[in-house]
Nucleic acid binder design. Structure first.
Lengths: 331, 331
DNA sequence: TTGTAGGCGTTATCAA
DNA sequence: TTGATAACGCCTACAA
């Protein structure tokens, strides 16, 4: 069933059918009704491939995440999809993993599909401290389609970023812990990504301003996994009175370690996670966590995406918002 | 840059370029090399819309989940995407929510995109006990594209289901608890979906076979939310010595209630969740849970999807696998 | 207000 | 081994 069939059945030309389909005001009411009735009766819908061929768009956005099983990414996608659907876009979702080669491959895959724009979720796409993950392939991709980065920053033409002041969030939390009297704060991080790096900078800055030397032993790079962290802390015999983790999972690992060791939380030990994910409410005591405002970041991103796709040229390339600290029982 | 540009630059016809592109063996080695060089140099790739227009396929699968922020769905999508990409398919992901009208709307949206097949994740798509969610729209959609259901069963032409023996899993667990001496088992469920219903049947069946009457007070329909459940149990003053929940979230709610009340878990109370999600390892004590084998269900589904898309006609319409019980500290 | 015809970029058939 | 051409289904500028 195509536009010719409808035209024939209605006794009009395909141009008229097309006009009816697009609500053109240059069609008489009677023909419009006649054609609409036939369209409805046959449940006819235009072929998106043919439409796409002409317009070079299928109203589809490509979204890339490293891992959709990660709470943060899932929440982000959930928010993005809802907004995009409301604007008439569909979402192709790719899961690239964290490996540089795979990330590039998945981005190329999306580009081949002629999506209208690309959204990269997570600071893993914004390069890393140690330069093992460069961002050239993203700059290149931006030559073809506008790219929007959630929770990471890359400067470049046709690249739009939305991120949170992670450095400041950690700085503030660290300062508050110091003010409270904590002196040996353990910093747990799972990556050397843009965001992780900035969190660390905020942490170290706060210590320095309080004339405390960051202790290298108390800055630990590990996996974001509950048991990996608790096992690791069990092995090393570290002395610390507070924990800041760059993801809730690691904070829970520290909590497990503390409870097993008989430490009182938060009396003997403050523990603060990051992302304010749903697992914060699962543990006992429940986890205090820095909320990085997924939904807000997503809505700011989509606002600008729509503007860019509408051809506006004064769309800001970088927007930053503040995190919240959500107090629960571990601090 | 299109196939005409390449043809012109190579001094051949577009037909020859197309042949080179598809590795036809009816092209001389020399022309093949000449054309390939020009294709590479210009980084030319065929327009997928034009290809789709001819073949009526863009090698894309539509996947519908009620909520991607749900651990089970996220794991499922993650597994499905990885497999599909390996077969050269992309995934459009839609999040429909649990509302019947929205589910139907999202399914229609996918159908309009001319995807090659549809995968529905979650038994919410398989109708409900109380018939408020009928499945007619799915049967209808199956008239257009093959439909694959993960974790739910609908019988119909062009519909392929993969599910777990949930009834048996709950039956076995309930029987084991009874054998251990538990007499007042609380059953927590969050929906009246196909799967939830079968879990309940397994639960009641096991009680009956042990000559225990299921107590209506101990079968609770609630939200799958930690605090909703713990608050609810705090309000009602129920007497129970074991808990089986149809999702880990509710089991954690029961655990929170128990710990607050000073009950010893598992000595005074066994608690068993469902889905074996990552939150099982977050709580203390860690949650025993029924593992419904997401990855395996997904790989069985994709195997058959590929076969169906290859035109095979003897593909089984329904496959069932067994769950595992993963013992942790709450039982 | 309506219709005709050309273009979008492929693939495939048939002829050379 | 290669090329010309129709077909896929829609949109739209231009003509009537």
């Amino acid at each position: 069933m195509n536009i010719y069939d409808i035209a024939e059945e209605a006794g009009v030309s395909i141009a008229t059918v097309s006009r009816v389909l697009h609500n053109s005001d240059k069609v008489s009411k009677s023909t419009k009704e006649k054609v609409m009735a036939i369209i409805d009766r046959n449940d006819y819908r235009p072929n998106v491939f043919a439409q796409g061929l002409g317009s070079d768009s299928m109203h589809t956005i490509g979204i890339l995440v490293p891992d959709i099983a990660d709470q943060y990414m899932a929440s982000a996608f959930s928010a993005l999809e809802k907004l995009l659907v409301s604007y008439g876009y569909d979402c192709i979702l790719g899961c690239s993993g964290y490996d540089a080669v795979e990330k590039e491959k998945h981005l190329k895959l999306l580009l081949e599909k002629r999506i209208d724009a690309i959204i990269l979720v997570g600071s893993t796409y914004a390069g890393s401290e140690d330069e093992t993950h460069n961002t050239d392939y993203i700059l290149e991709a931006a030559g073809e389609k506008p790219i929007f980065i959630i929770n990471g920053i890359i400067e470049g033409k046709n690249i739009y970023c939305t991120a949170t002041y992670d450095e400041k969030a950690v700085y503030d939390v660290t300062s508050a812990l110091v003010k409270k009297g904590r002196r040996k704060i353990l910093f747990l991080t799972d990556s050397r990504s843009y965001a992780a790096n900035h969190k660390k900078i905020g942490f170290e800055q706060a210590l320095k301003e309080a004339s405390l030397m960051p202790d290298p032993e108390l800055i630990i790079h590990t996996q974001n996994n509950v048991h990996t962290v608790s096992d690791l802390l069990n092995e090393r015999d570290l002395d610390f009175d507070a924990v800041i983790a760059t993801d809730d999972g690691m904070a829970i690992g520290a909590l497990k370690y503390a409870l097993k060791k008989g430490l009182r939380v938060p009396e003997d030990l403050d523990i603060i996670g990051y992302n304010n994910s749903s697992i914060c409410e699962v543990s006992a005591p429940e986890l205090t966590s820095i909320d990085n405002k997924v939904e807000k970041v997503c809505s700011i991103t989509i606002d600008r995406l729509i503007r860019v796709l509408n051809g506006e040229t004064d769309v800001p390339s970088c927007e930053m918002i503040h995190c919240d600290l959500v107090h629960r029982e571990t601090s």
